[in-house]
Amino acid sequence: MLIVVLSDLRIPTSTASLPPQFAALLKQKSRIDKVLLLGDSITELNNKSKLILKLELGLVNEDKGEDGDEEEKEEGTSDELLDIISPIPNSVIKIDGLSIGCCSSLHVPRGDPLTLLSISRQLNVDILLVPPSGPIGKSAMGGTIGGINGGSEAYTLDDTLFVCPGSATGAFIPGNDNNNNDSDNKETRPPSFCLLETIPEGPDNTLAQCTLYIYTLDPNTNQVSIDKLSYTKK
């Protein structure tokens, strides 16, 4: 199964839309099985984020009036083909024999692997998806990527795969010192998201496994780079 994991969109408050390169990738609906939009710190706000993401991906008709233009009608004709899930915090999704835990920034206040380990024990999961942590705006997983906080990150610890997809828009975070690198209107952390490809247990006793792809957009070159990480269930 192919599962896209997105988080920290901050549309429209900090940015207008997904980077076009990402939107194009994500609109290949036929290939993607699920989209996980990692939860907001407050569950109430999730539905709104979900609706906004749907609009971004053209899954909902952007009412253009009855005689809307054809080009615009093309999109959004077949909504709900793509399954967008905004998991409630600390919920577990089971796919292909892997349990995937989803936490919200609510539960990861400290950029701190010990806390993440604690959550992975509590949820008893193989993979833990972690949004960039909310108010602090650092990478929820403690580290900094390329000197920029709040970026994507992934590592295996205690037989568990921890994945932070970063921010799909790379939007401004208040109070994050790294915001001021550039006084141009540019975003300061590279936009990124993740794709999980899960493979179930094989008949020849191969274990359930998962390949993680991290898509990162270099804001300077506008190129998307892909990092890969493999994980096998223990």
Partner: peptide, 11 residues
Amino acid sequence: ESLIIIINTLM
């Protein structure tokens, strides 16, 4: 939930 983000922010 609000209280938790208040605590997190205070930290």
